[in-house]
Design a binder for these strands. Structure first.
Lengths: 407, 407
DNA sequence: ACCTCTTTGTTCAGAACTAAACAAAGAATA
DNA sequence: TATTCTTTGTTTAGTTCTGAACAAAGAGGT
């Protein structure tokens, strides 16, 4: 009895799965190099995973100069994760496979300022989870606009939603009985970019979101920079203009108070471009149809953003800057001011920094949150802490639902 | 024959030595916790190191609630490192013991713009090395104002000294036949702060130097943030003022062009506070003796620095900001503008960030460079790469100068 | 004085991993 | 076509490290 393969180190096992999920099929040799272990060990680990049905051997074999590689791929039934994007007035859910593909999604109204918001959110999430597919659910990732304490206990501070020290993570864990990983939404986006987007090719990059607020996710050597209190990336409150407009944070002249959505709308109304009750869509429409004052508003915003980002680039030296968020819908107008200001504010040796602009949807934010769960196996026990361990456990348990199945 | 203890993993061995050097004596249990290995292994490793004469057991035993700890200390003869600070017009050397104490120091004139600067520097360094003590020399750390390529090969770009792609590291290695680690001087200071200064208590902090230039060293989770090209921390070129004064980088309105030493002196002359041929010392003197215009110049500089640093704090969320450099001699005048500007530009939750001002000497910069060598064993093979391995080797060889000494 | 609790440090079996040799399978080359 | 080279993947032997049990040495209470 007890011929159970004595579960190898879970970290390595799940790192293999996560790697395959994020980067697609790979050979044993590739994996050994990527995860920095010996080929010998990789043979062992993959043998186990194959016999457990988590991996499968693909016939495919490229062959380039030497023995052709036998590619390994994930069994798509190995697991899935749920991602949640929480904002002030609604919640978006996605259910993604272990390979990052969206299986299912939904969006529900939600009032973050209601006194029952925690129970409301739990209920909505519980309903979405209940409608799930057959693959085992590894965990839930939640992206929120605000800062989250380091250990991903899920203690949330959010000025945007009026939350102070809300125990979002622990509450959801208890209620749902699932691993829950809570993270700032821009950081979640940065992780998604690292796994599935432009960031796959870069270890050091900056994700900047423009929209209601201005935020940044900072990726350094492949991991998110959180700072001492989980509050890194609050670039929306970089002081830009002395005695500038009042910001939601109480200060004057923050970046966000000048180029945030509210500020642009206010300018549009003030300069008579749009009506007193029109919003950002109208302003963008005006610019699209050639209104000079409207394009100027966006271009000026681009100018301010360009100068400020140049400063951040000098501070952090990223390989690439990725601009995201609802605001990118009007990027063609922003860029008019952004490009010259950004380039001319950089020191010569840094002037070649790439800038990529992407238009992601609401769903993408939630996908970023799901990526938190799928990415946890990567972080060496540190970041996601307890919840990360739980995700790993579920990923491994999956092979041996009960006790050891005899030979 | 061959009863040689079969040298255990060098990384762990030298990590123990480096840890003891940086933090003073510690018990085996302390070390095991700090270096994240099992107590069992620590027993093994320290047994070897003790028998090799690199460590010694201290009688001292605090005892607090349980069995009293047997402290371990370094044999001060285990090794030493040389630190070099290179600037445009001179070079400073220090010779420090493995515990970070300065044994010997020197300063020599040097012309970074001479065509023979590489040979000159080699010669000066060779002479200083020759005058060394008895402890084995582990390596040489060099701090330069400029950016150094990632692998610490020592390829230097420095606008301040007019160097482009100077192979400083490889040249010195070849000529001196010693491990050489080259690093940006502010980063070196940050490492020194981490080992010996305020940074011992913090994993996330910012070192800001004010003087000729303005620079920053960024410590994240205990390691220096270098960025993609080793150019992180160039905060001197953050754009501050549209159409501001011309900067050495060719742009206008960089932070450095407004509050760098040259800018302050120019203001002082322009406003008639000091003569056309007086320098920063005269300006500081004027402020010290109460000249209102002089104090205003420093205070305005403090104001600009405060606002800009607030932006960096929002971006990185450090626990503490440490201000250093020659400029701190006049800090009492800077702070008049700095404090209110800094605090009022921070979002409420960040307003408590600590600021420490230290006045370090030329020698401290060189000590920071030496710290590079003593700190290498910490970085897990990554940063200092080849040179780090060499330092480790020398630290280990030291116990077995030749082949295995019989029983 | 005696028991319990806490912390340090050691020993030993066994797990996790690596290094090195080798087998497999094709490309490049003569 | 045979030879060499390159890369993948496996096997085996051995090293590094951990976990768990235990001994040592004191503090704190009863």
């Amino acid at each position: 009895m007890a011929n159970r393969p004595q579960a190898r180190t879970d970290v390595n096992r799940s790192a293999i799965l996560a790697r395959l999920g994020a980067h697609g099929p790979a050979s044993r040799a590739d994996l050994a190099r990527a995860l920095n272990v010996s080929p010998a060990l990789m043979t062992q680990l993959t043998k186990d995973l194959l016999s457990e049905g988590l991996l499968r051997e693909l016939e495919h074999s490229p062959s380039q100069g030497g023995r052709p590689a036998r590619m390994l791929g994930l069994m798509s039934t190995a697991g899935r994760a749920i991602g949640v994007k929480v904002v002030a007035d609604h919640v978006a859910f996605v259910d993604v496979g272990i390979d990052g593909t969206v299986v299912r999604s939904a969006s529900e109204p939600f009032d973050a300022s209601a006194s029952t918001f925690l129970a409301d959110l739990t209920g909505l999430l519980r309903r979405f989870v209940a409608g799930g597919g057959s693959a085992p659910l590894l965990g839930v990732g939640v992206g929120v606009p605000g800062s989250v304490d380091r250990q991903a206990n899920g203690l949330v501070d959010s000025t945007q939603m009026g939350w102070r020290q809300v125990p979002l993570g622990s509450t959801l864990q208890r209620e749902l009985n699932l691993p829950v990983i809570v993270e700032n939404n821009v950081n979640a986006l940065a992780i998604a970019e690292r796994l599935y987007g432009v960031g796959r090719l870069h270890e050091n990059f900056l994700v900047v979101t423009i929209g209601t607020g201005i935020g940044a996710g900072i990726m350094v050597d492949g991991v998110v920079l959180r700072g001492s209190g989980g509050g890194a990336g609050e670039v929306g409150h970089i002081p830009v203009e002395v005695d500038g407009p009042l910001c939601t944070c109480g200060n004057h002249g923050c970046l966000e108070s000048i180029i945030g959505e509210a500020a642009l709308v206010r300018l549009g109304r003030g300069r008579g471009v749009i009506g007193e009750h029109s919003g950002i869509a109208a302003l963008r429409g005006a610019a699209d149809s050639g209104n000079a004052e409207a394009t100027r508003i966006f271009s000026e915003a681009g100018h301010v953003l360009g100068r400020t980002l140049a400063g951040i680039v000098h501070t952090l030296d990223p390989e690439i800057v990725i601009v995201l968020g609802e605001g990118t819908a009007a990027w063609s107008h922003w860029s008019f001011g952004f490009e010259p200001a950004f380039r001319s504010s950089l020191i010569p040796s840094r002037r070649g920094v790439a800038v990529a602009v992407e238009t992601w949807q609401d769903e993408s934010w939630a996908q970023g949150a799901a990526a938190l769960v799928l990415a946890t196996p990567f972080d060496a026990e540190d970041m996601a802490g307890d919840q990360g361990r739980l995700v790993r456990e579920r990923l491994v348990e999956q092979a041996f639902p009960q006790a050891g199945a005899g030979a």
